[in-house]
């Protein structure tokens, strides 16, 4: 049973492509004389495969958006959807259910986490790549191992620790535990290793200190990677749910993801809020999606992992 119709489509694309491997010539996509995009067999199949894959991936979002235009989760015909119900749904979600406030909190939390995590990880990567010190591999291992300690595994003691620190309902609790990041340090290290050694040697010859070297040479040369890594960190902290749910109980401080959970609570109490749920989901998706689209170029150029 084909697990995912998407794979099926691509499988067809691949089998037929193999069949005609022979005279596959790659012509310039736009054939100047004839003015038409001269698509040969292979490119056509590539586009077909891509269109299918991409449309299957976008389908859920499209349907979620449609539901947010209606009044009930199951709509039989598009006629039941209307713009002013949508406006009503989105207005309710943003203001009556405070999703607007939650998103501002999430934004502030994410920006602090991104900047904090970036600063901390840049320093760590600088030490790991440009310093020789005893037990270096062990220290790097300790940083990487944090990948294996996700929030659910340590939630109760973490809560008690934050409570003892008096951080309940504070931005400190929402941001500081996230500052250590194995992925960021790893990606920055990979990038620093791709910078020629002679640059740091000539900096040392000039007597340029490590922090000045980081600020004026490493960071300007890693703008692409920093932007890319910031996108990943922003999306990671924006999508945090379990920890904010527990550590914040004052709703003026709550984050967007928990806002969705609260909307879900509304539905559970029998109220037909499914379109509201979808509106809430679409609204919380906008910032991370915007960040992803704006910064897609650096993301794609600098993310080779050697």
């Amino acid at each position: 049973m084909s697990r995912h119709s998407n794979t099926n489509a691509n499988a067809n694309a691949s089998t037929s492509a193999n069949a005609s491997t022979g005279g596959e010539s790659r012509r310039f996509p736009i054939d100047l004389e004839r003015g038409l995009p001269a698509l040969d067999g292979a490119t056509l199949r590539a586009h077909a495969g891509l269109l299918l894959a991409v449309s299957l991936m976008a389908l859920p979002l499209v349907i979620a958006a449609l539901i947010s235009f209606g009044t009930r989760a199951t709509f039989t015909s598009v006629s039941e959807l209307s713009l002013e119900t949508a406006a009503q749904n989105y207005h309710d979600v943003l203001f009556r259910y405070d999703m607007g406030q939650y998103m501002l909190n999430s934004l502030l939390m994410s920006v602090i986490v991104v900047i904090g995590k970036l600063a901390v990880s840049l320093l760590a990567a600088l030490a790991i790549v440009y310093y020789r010190f005893p037990f270096k591999n062990a220290v790097f291992g300790v940083v990487l191992l944090t990948l294996m300690l996700p929030v659910p595994v340590r939630i109760v003691p973490l809560f008690q620790l934050a409570a003892d620190l008096g951080w309940a309902n504070s931005f400190a609790a929402l941001t500081i535990p996230y500052l250590a990041s194995a992925t960021t340090v790893f990606l920055l290290r990979q990038h620093f290793l791709s910078i020629p050694a002679s640059l740091v040697e000539s900096a040392k010859l000039d007597g340029v200190g490590p922090l000045r070297f980081l600020a004026f040479v490493l960071i300007p040369m890693s703008k692409g990677m920093i932007a890319g890594v910031s996108v990943i960190m922003f999306i990671y902290s924006w999508n945090q749910y379990l920890w904010p749910l527990l550590i914040v109980d004052d709703q003026s401080m709550q984050v967007a993801q928990v806002g969705i959970r609260l909307l879900q609570g509304v539905v559970e109490s029998g109220d037909i809020a499914w379109p509201l749920m979808m509106a809430g989901s679409i609204v919380t998706l906008v910032p991370p999606l915007a960040v992803l689209i704006i910064f897609r170029k650096p993301l794609l150029e600098t993310f080779g992992v050697e």
């Binding site: 999306i235 999508n239 879900q264 979808m278 989901s281 992803l292 689209i293 897609r296």
Partner: peptide
Amino acid sequence: IAAIWPYALPPAVAGIVFLFL
């Protein structure tokens, strides 16, 4: 853009949307 947008989607939202699909 069409291929990488699911990454921006929070997991909880993805779950709800799929539930309704």
